[in-house]
Design a protein around this nucleic acid. Structure first.
Lengths: 328, 328
DNA sequence: CTCCTCTCTGTAAGCCCTTACAATTTCGAG
DNA sequence: CTCGAAATTGTAAGGGCTTACAGAGAGGAG
């Protein structure tokens, strides 16, 4: 059932049917009604492909997400999706994980599908291999990076100020005489890399030496963290505070330390639901996901309307102090 | 830059270029190399639209997700996405929330885009308004419903045995002399409806009357649950155990009860991360998300290959007993 | 009654590929 | 050297829609 069939059944030309389809006013009310009736009756579904080919636009946005298993990103996707939907834009989704090749492929795929723009949620740290692909994509459509930062023309970045947050945090802990702060991270996203930078910078600021044993990569999994903490303790690696680059890491540490009877300040990132569910409740740095997404969406809108947009937007973070902050 | 340009630059016909594009063996090695070189050089991106129009297939699956804010569904989406990607299928995403009209629109949209199949994650309870749309969609492409159950020809359902789980659970509690079990639910998904059914059926089985005051709809939000529990206590509604249709509901109850000093068995559903983060750790019914998704994917594969598939699949659940189960 | 304008409709040329079929070239066997 | 099969390439007809442009009909002004 295509536009020709409908046209024939109505005794009009395909142009008229097309006009009805597109709410073009140059159709008499009578004709429009007749065409609509036939469409209804025949259960006609116009092909978005053919329309896209004709107009050159699929009204679609490509979203590349690092991983949906991180609820922070899942929430970002949900937020973005809701906005796009209201805006009449559709969403082509692809998760990329940590494989840079996968990333380039995904970009390629999005371009092949005539997306209006590409949104990256939580990028891998700028892997040199994929920058060309990203730059190439940016030359064709607006590219927006949420929770990452990159210096590429045409790539618009929105990122929480994780580095500032962790510097401030380390400062507070140092002032409370914490000198050996354990930093757990999962070595995946750009923002994670930024946290490590902030940590080392802060140590430098206070004239302290960073003990590399205190910067530990571990999976965001309670058991993995537990094992990791135990190993540290067995190896006599001492620490007097813990920062988790993700709440889940901090929570894992909290559990592990509870078992050993140790108590110290524990701080996570993202202010996720589990942080509030823990007992004692976990202190966490809130990245203001909504502000982050809103900024990204705003940029998207601006670029789609050919308006200028800032290449780098920094979203302030906020420390949500809860019970685990004052631990001794 | 289209296939004609490439053909011209290579001094071959578009058919040859197309053959190269499709890895058709009927191209001499020399020609293939030349064409590939030009493509590379020109940074040529074939239009997936035009290819789709030509072949009648976009190699795309439509996924309608009730909400991504429920991490359970986000995980399901992640799992499904990974599989589809490996399989070379692309993913058109749309969240539908609770609005049935939105649901029909989304189905319509998927069909317009020539998806190979439609996957619904966590359906609204069978709203009469949307059944026709679903049935119509099912007539055109395979429709698979994850975490829901429906009796419509062409709709293949995979659902956890939530009803059985809650019946068993209520049974255990009743045997431990719990007669007033509070059931918190968020009144959204099919599986939630099923839990309510299981609850009332179990009560009937044990010859107990259900107190409607004990079946409470509340948002999956810690504060909302807290308010809700407090209101119940103020109104002297007594209960001696709590089941949350989602972990978050159970956790909210746990927090609220901890503040009042009350202690009783608390059980959630989904065995999510927050359940393990809580102290004491929350007992939860594990829906075996992986098995659920695997079954759905299996059915998808079968239907795409024209093989028969079961219309209804029931995934067994498992109670993961943790500290909150034995509370008194 | 004529002419012009405005409204409505139709024609046909894209959009960018795929693919059946025809045509050409190549090669080895006889 | 000739011929047929095999390998390679080209031609052209879709696929389902949009849209610029042309054409027809209706209605009003003069």
């Amino acid at each position: 059932m295509n536009i020709y069939d409908i046209a024939e059944k109505c005794g009009v030309s395909i142009a008229t049917v097309s006009r009805v389809l597109n709410n073009n006013p140059n159709v008499s009310a009578a004709t429009r009604a007749r065409v609509l009736a036939v469409m209804e009756e025949e259960n006609y579904t116009p092909s978005a492909l053919a329309r896209g080919l004709g107009t050159g636009s699929m009204r679609m946005v490509g979203v590349l997400c690092t991983t949906l298993c991180n609820p922070y990103y899942a929430d970002a996707l949900a937020y973005v999706e809701a906005h796009l939907r209201r805006r009449g834009l559709h969403l082509l989704l692809r998760c990329t994980g940590t494989d840079p090749q996968e990333n380039s492929q995904a970009l390629q795929y999005m371009l092949q599908n005539h997306v209006e723009a590409i949104l990256l949620i939580g990028a891998i740290p700028p892997a040199p291999e994929e920058e060309p692909a990203l730059a190439a994509a940016a030359r064709q459509v607006p590219v927006i990076l949420l929770d990452g930062d990159l210096d590429l023309p045409g790539v618009y970045c929105v990122c929480g100020d994780h580095k500032g947050a962790i510097m401030e945090l380390v400062g507070q802990l140092v002032r409370r005489q914490r000198r050996r702060i354990l930093l757990l991270h999962d070595a995946m996203t750009y923002s994670c890399r930024q946290k490590i930078d902030g940590y080392t910078d802060a140590y430098a600021t206070y004239g302290l030496a960073v003990d590399p044993q205190l910067i530990v990569a571990v999976d965001s999994d309670l058991d993995a963290v537990n094992t990791c903490i135990k190993r540290l303790l067995v190896n006599r690696v001492t620490f007097d505070a813990v920062i988790g680059a993700e709440d889940m890491l901090a929570l894992g540490a909290q559990k592990a330390l509870q078992r050993t009877g140790l108590s110290m300040p524990i701080i996570g990132f993202n202010n996720s639901l589990p942080a509030r569910c823990a007992t004692p409740e976990l202190t966490s740095v809130d990245g203001d996901l909504e502000a982050l997404c809103d900024a990204g969406i705003r940029i998207l809108e601006d670029l789609l309307e050919q308006r200028p947009a800032p290449a780098h937007t920094r979203i302030p973070t906020q420390l949500v102090e809860r019970a685990t902050f004052r631990n001794n």
